[in-house]
Design a protein around this nucleic acid. Structure first.
Length: 565
RNA sequence: GACCUGAUAGCUCAGCCGGUAGAGCAUUUCACUUUUAAUGAAAGGGUCCUGGGUUCGAAUCCCAGUCAGGUCACCA
């Protein structure tokens, strides 16, 4: 891949050569004995203390024989003070004048041995006694700056560039780094919460012969030696339940799921869910468990149960409100779905501006009403309970109403964050529900599952204890806890369309070359006429050829001659 | 999938009615020993996203496309 280097990149490559000529390895092998971090230095300042620090050079203010610079390490930035006479011995000033001033650049990794002091204006700084180039940076970083009023100039904000070059984003945007630190804190908090209760973190297959546990379009791949298709997992539910059958009390997994569907600011083709299954529990227990968990996580991540999301203030403090789906619909529409026939529901939808079609059954219709009229109203964490049976093929029938299931979803800011069941463990009922799904799929409902996992049914036949399971959309939760409106902001490397490749010769360039090849050299005016391109095409073509170094224009007084190189 | 907006120097952005491509930071050179985004002076740096059209002439107008962002639709 050939690539035009900018002037600044060429300068840095040149510096690289000069450093080597001075006997300085720009990419040394040896470890650097770092013994201090910027944050600790500032927190525990001691005048004159010797420190060894390392990081990226992020700014420089050079004034003659002295210079202030900022070094950025994993914890932040610290000011360092370079003085020619401190780092150079005798009359040899090369280390300061040449190496520091000319051959180092912003972005270089440098190791520094020095002493702590405070400048006249009181800023904690490191007086450099000795510095070592640890790694040369050949590409200039974006360079946001913060002024004395805290205003940021030249911020690196273009989402396309930030997502494609997340490494640069992380270097120059500390608030972006903070999001990912919080993301990891959330994982750690959940693990702690589960592990303290004796539940076990497990791993289940990502490549599955049957994609189950959710209705979603899977990615398909192919295993060569088995010569079978394999699907990337869309959910891990069925595998975790097999482990409950196997006798674990509680199992959980942070599962990367893959769904071959549309992408937008809340959907990435791969996303992270956490699923946990606990035996001998039901969904009432799971609701209490969930609100305790989220309260704990919010505190571990943000130090408080309160979080800001856009215009909303959300409080994760338990307990959360519980509303049945039936009551929710009554609350927002005055319509009671209880005991209504499919036709009655459809008629109501039609007269209330809800789009429906003939393929929708009762469950789907109720779901539409809820989605249209209720869902968006739940800002504070709220459990919506008791979903219609058709929508929940893996969930146990409600103990009081056979048309419903023991299921809840947790709504926050109008979106689903968690989904939980009293799990269906009756193998015969489960088989019938799978078969019903299959029929729906055959009829063309693309949301219904197209596979029956007979091995999962076999597992249930051995017997699964009563179990409750919970799934949490981790990315969405991170969005809420870090006040980000898009999933791309909380994924290190969101999926992007491939960057376009630079094309070879354009048609106009080829046309000009064609004519010029016969003549070797030609007057520019004549050449333009001979090629017969429009002004714009001609201009583009010539610029392109010039750039590729294929033609050259020789100017001699009035005449301009185009020459093949 | 529909619609709206955007793409110009390494970065952030101007660029009017179509007429030689601009600023700040960054870079290079020179001066400067405690500075706080921004010392002074000078210089260099461009596939104006791609392709086509209109035009004597296009960064600018028109069409098509690419990529991104947003709104909506879809979405267990």
């Amino acid at each position: 891949m050939s690539q035009q280097l900018s002037e600044q990149e060429l300068v840095r490559r040149d510096s690289l050569t000069k450093l080597r000529e001075l006997g300085i390895n720009p990419y040394p092998q040896a470890l650097y004995p770092v013994d201090a971090l910027s944050k600790d230095i500032k927190a525990n300042y001691e005048e004159g203390k010797k420190v060894i620090i390392a990081g990226r050079l992020m700014s420089r203010r050079i004034q003659g024989k002295a210079s202030f610079a900022e070094l950025q390490d994993s914890e932040g930035r610290i000011q360092v003070y370079f003085n020619r006479d401190e780092i150079c011995s005798g009359d040899d000033h090369a280390m300061y004048n040449e190496v520091y001033k000319k051959l180092l650049d912003i972005g270089d990794f440098v190791g520094i041995k020095g002493e702590l002091f405070k400048t006249q204006v009181g800023e904690i700084s490191v007086r450099v006694k000795e510095f070592t180039l640890l790694s040369k940076s050949l590409k200039p970083l974006p360079l946001p700056k913060t002024d004395s009023e805290g205003k940021v100039h030249d911020a690196f904000t273009d989402p396309e560039m930030r997502y494609r070059q997340r490494y640069a984003d992380l270097v120059v945007n500390p608030h972006v780094k903070e999001v990912f630190i919080k993301r990891t804190k959330l994982f750690n908090a959940m693990r702690t919460f589960f592990n303290e209760r004796g539940y076990m973190e497990v791993e289940t297959p990502v490549l599955q012969p049957i994609p189950g546990g959710a209705a979603a379009r899977p990615f398909v791949t192919h295993h060569n030696s088995l010569d079978i298709p394999l699907y990337m997992r869309i959910a891990n539910e069925l595998y975790l339940k097999r482990l409950i059958v196997g006798g674990f009390e509680g199992v959980y997994e942070f599962s990367r799921n893959f769904r071959n569907e549309g992408m937008d600011r809340t959907h990435n083709p791969e996303f992270t869910a956490m699923e946990i299954y606990v035996s001998y529990k039901d969904y009432n227990w799971m609701m209490a468990f969930t609100e305790q968990l989220l309260e704990y996580c919010a505190i571990q991540v943000n130090g408080t149960t309160k979080a800001t999301f856009g215009e909303h203030q959300v409080d994760f403090k338990a307990p959360y409100k519980r509303v049945t789906m039936r009551q929710s619909i009554i609350d927002f529409t005055g319509f009671d779905i209880d005991g209504k026939t499919e036709d009655e529901l459809r008629t109501w939808c039609q007269s209330n501006n809800i789009e429906v079609d003939e393929t929708m059954g009762k469950g789907k219709l109720i779901d539409e009403i809820f989605g249209e009229k209720c869902e968006g109203n739940y800002i504070q964490p709220t459990f919506i309970t008791d979903y219609p049976k058709e929508m929940s093929p893996l969930c146990k029938e409600h103990r009081e109403n056979p048309e419903l299931t023991e299921r809840f979803e947790l709504m926050i800011c109008g979106k689903e964050v968690a989904n939980a069941y009293t799990e269906l463990n009756d193998p015969i009922d489960q088989k019938e529900r799978f078969e019903a799904q299959l029929k729906l799929a055959e009829r063309g409902d693309d949301e219904a599952s197209q596979f029956i996992d007979y091995d999962f049914l076999r597992a249930l036949e051995y017997g699964m204890p009563p179990t409750s399971g919970l799934g949490i959309g981790i990315d969405r939760l991170v969005m809420y806890l870090t006040n980000n409106q898009s999933i791309q902001e909380v994924l290190f490397f969101p999926q992007m369309k491939p960057e376009k490749k630079s094309v070879e010769l354009s048609e106009s360039e080829k046309a000009i070359l064609e004519v010029l090849k016969k003549a070797e050299r030609m007057d520019v005016g004549e050449l333009k006429n001979a090629v017969g391109l429009s002004g714009k095409q001609w201009d583009k073509g010539m610029k392109g050829l010039n750039k590729h170094g294929l033609v050259k224009v020789e100017v001699d007084g009035e005449s301009k001659v185009c020459v093949l190189v």
